[in-house]
Computed example of a mutant assay.
Amino acid sequence: MTHSANISARRTPRQYRSRQTVEAVLAAVPLILKRHGAGAMTTNRIAEVAGVSIGSLYQYFPDKRSVFSALHERHVVDVRSLLERHVASYGSAPFSAFVVDLVEELVDLHCVDMELHRLISVAINEGPEHFRAALHAAFAECIIRCGARDMDRILFVLPNLVEGLVHGVTLSPLTSRQAKGEAVKATLAYLAVHPELSR
């Protein structure tokens, strides 16, 4: 997860019509994927499906990769908002319940437009380091609140485990429901060796 939004567009859309153009371009990408597949993804096709001229597209996106970067940034914002919301609402519930709820929501988020997630990951070559770091920070804050010991050991495993499971969903042949169930089982299996997190 990087801050690629500042480099993903030539101009920042300020007027309503400009914002509409950008939204139409971004919305065109999943439509093309569903109708024609990743091989048909060109800037000309994106502009055509978006209903804008290729010149209008290039005003905001210098190339196809910058369109994908903007979509990735939008996903980053969604993930951060989800993490912040969960941390803010974490009260007296067991830490394990917090983690399971979080894993389920993260899996749900990544099950929407899985092909789009795969395309963007390959196109912009974005690693999972920032996602793991955000998970690390969220888990650390909540572990401190529940007073668990061995925090360093837990934080060595848990963010990597959850990140791998959540991003693995986009490559899995399982249904979203099955993938969610397996991700939750794997997470609970790890948490079971730290009973202090279930209190």
Rank of each mutant, 00 (worst) to 15 (best):
M1C: 06
M1R: 10
H3G: 13
P13S: 09
P13M: 02
Q15R: 15
Q15V: 08
Q20K: 13
V22K: 06
V22P: 01
V22E: 09
A27R: 15
A27P: 04
A28V: 09
R35D: 14
A38Q: 13
A40Q: 11
T43F: 05
T43S: 11
N44G: 15
G51S: 05
V52Y: 12
S53F: 01
S56W: 00
L57I: 08
Y60G: 00
K64G: 00
R65C: 01
F68P: 00
F68S: 07
H72R: 12
E73V: 04
R74L: 07
V76C: 11
D78N: 10
S89V: 06
Y90N: 10
S92I: 10
P94T: 08
F95C: 00
S96G: 13
F98C: 05
E104I: 03
E105Y: 02
V107F: 09
D108G: 02
H110S: 09
E115P: 00
L119N: 03
I120D: 08
S121Y: 07
V122M: 00
N125F: 01
N125Y: 02
H130M: 04
A133L: 11
A133R: 14
L135F: 05
H136V: 01
H136C: 03
A137G: 03
A138Y: 06
F139M: 02
A140M: 10
C142G: 05
C142I: 02
R145C: 06
C146E: 12
G147R: 11
D152R: 05
I154Q: 13
L158W: 08
N160C: 02
L161P: 09
L165R: 12
V166Y: 12
H167C: 03
G168C: 08
G168V: 07
S172F: 09
P173K: 12
L174R: 15
A179K: 01
A179I: 01
K180Q: 11
E182A: 06
V184D: 03
K185Q: 13
T187D: 05
T187L: 01
A189H: 07
P195C: 05
P195N: 05
R199A: 03
